[in-house]
């Protein structure tokens, strides 16, 4: 479904990605793990069109989207839920959700999607008219994911959904992620919380200083001495 080949991305003269290649198949939950500054978020931003690679290609459903504008990429069915949630704090929860579906027309199926998102995150139902900035961190993360789902994505990019959240909330968020996968969504997940990521994912890529250094199933990686030492802290 998504195929990335030899991606090189720079911030000015600073190299962030140094030839990354990987792929995500339909229906899979693929996790991208690595430490701070390894290039995980950069990868997602390049896929969603916020960054232009200096070299390399992004293929989505066999079409080259390397230089496609972000709003076109959303229209193609990729939704990126960014790091740090980035919800619109001055807008209400309802408005935030509506903006998730900004490219779609108001109508019955959008109302149905809204109901579905609210059934995933019932707490948001009570907050619909509240402004986004008044929500707790966990609620904001739920809103961010819900908002990303409102565009009916085929591929969901999740950037650090567990960032800064209490363990119980993280547990809840990952339940939702598993649920989404069961419902057939394809998900590319970026995480520093390696335990959770390994538990949820079908396949895992380890990224270090802009390069993929390891790949495999969660079981393989759990027993890889290098991963154990660097990421699982054993």
């Amino acid at each position: 479904m998504l195929k990335i080949a030899d991606l090189h991305v720079y911030y000015g003269s600073i190299r962030a990605l140094n030839g990354i290649s990987f792929q995500v198949n339909e229906g899979e939950l693929v996790a991208l793990i690595g430490s701070n500054g390894a290039g995980k978020s950069t990868t997602l931003k390049t896929i969603s069109g916020l960054l232009r690679p200096r070299q390399g290609i992004v293929l989505y459903e066999d079409a080259d989207i390397t230089r496609t504008a972000p709003d076109r990429i959303v229209a193609l069915g990729i939704s990126h839920c960014p790091e740090g949630r980035r919800i619109f704090g001055g807008l209400t929860v309802r408005e935030n959700l509506r903006l998730g579906a900004v490219q779609r027309r108001q109508g019955a199926d959008m109302a149905a999607d809204m109901d579905w998102v609210l059934s995933l995150f019932p707490i948001l139902k009570e907050r619909l008219s509240q402004s986004g900035g008044t929500l707790s961190g966990g609620e904001q993360q739920m809103l961010a994911i819900g908002r990303a789902l409102m565009s009916r994505p085929k591929l969901l990019l999740l950037d650090e959904p567990s960032l800064g959240l209490a363990p119980l909330v993280v547990e809840h968020i990952f339940q939702i992620i598993r649920q989404l996968k069961q419902q057939g969504k394809t998900i590319l997940l970026v995480e520093q919380n390696v335990h959770q990521a390994l538990d949820a994912a079908d396949r895992v890529y380890v990224i270090e200083t802009g390069q993929i250094t390891l790949t495999g199933t969660p079981d393989e990686l759990k027993h890889n001495p290098q991963v154990e030492q660097s990421y699982l802290g054993r």
Binding site: D71, V74, S79, P82, R86, F88, L99, V102
Partner: peptide, 17 residues
């Protein structure tokens, strides 16, 4: 709404499409 969203966070607004 899109305009207000863009005013709050241009990048996030792009990600909405």
């Amino acid at each position: 709404l899109s305009m207000r969203a863009a005013a709050e966070d241009l990048t996030a607004a792009q990600l909405m499409g």
